[in-house]
Design a protein around this nucleic acid. Sequence first.
DNA 1: TTGACGCGTACCCATATGGGTATATGATGA
DNA 2: TCATCATATACCCATATGGGTACGCGTCAA
Lengths: 113, 113
Amino acid sequence: MARAATTSDVFNAIAEPRRREILVLLRAGERPVTELAQELGMPQPGASKHLRVLREVGLVRDRKSGKQRLYSLDARELRAVHEWTGGFERFWNESFDRLDTYLQDIKQAKQEE
Amino acid sequence: MARAATTSDVFNAIAEPRRREILVLLRAGERPVTELAQELGMPQPGASKHLRVLREVGLVRDRKSGKQRLYSLDARELRAVHEWTGGFERFWNESFDRLDTYLQDIKQAKQEE
DNA sequence: TTGACGCGTACCCATATGGGTATATGATGA
DNA sequence: TCATCATATACCCATATGGGTACGCGTCAA
């Protein structure tokens, strides 16, 4: 069954380093494929494929402009990832040495409810 | 060349829904593999494999306890993901309709420097 | 020492993935 | 209409991935 389709999951879409680079590049504004490919140091078809994945999960948009197709960022989906990881914030804030104690406190508090 | 090794990249490690579930489950405290497998509704070897990936990227730790091996969360690496996505915050906060204007403003401000 | 647990690994398999090259498609300008 | 530029697709390939099953290994109790 392999992994869930990349094209349907934002987490999977940003699992690719190149795609993350593309998103970062697009923060500076919309860009045509060729330019992105150049900045990534990869052939155009490769960039196009990555952009397709990003488009299908909704992380980028495109609009035609003459012969070109300009891609732009649509970061809304990234918010979900940000919030999901945010759900672990108290765990990385806790000193790891104290984590055990911390968990025991929670457990105990729960039993006392 | 396929994708970068899952075992070396946190983004890749959390691209798997099951692995994300495991992390969530571990927020409640350390657990043995069998229990996790049960809660995930998957055979133990499968859970072990996912746990191995999580361990190799440093998202979980394990300690032996008699016949069991207890896994616990180490969310520190998730912070990187949280911060990376956080770098896009201003983009999902901006109304998308206004994004163009926003970018132009930035561009103009830059030229005026 | 033996048997039962709890777990990690080895294998095998179907499939998704990313890269590369060639080529189809679309739009523009002469 | 034709040549050209900008992109997307179609293929082909090597490889990583996740799932399932069988099994090896260490630990504990009797």
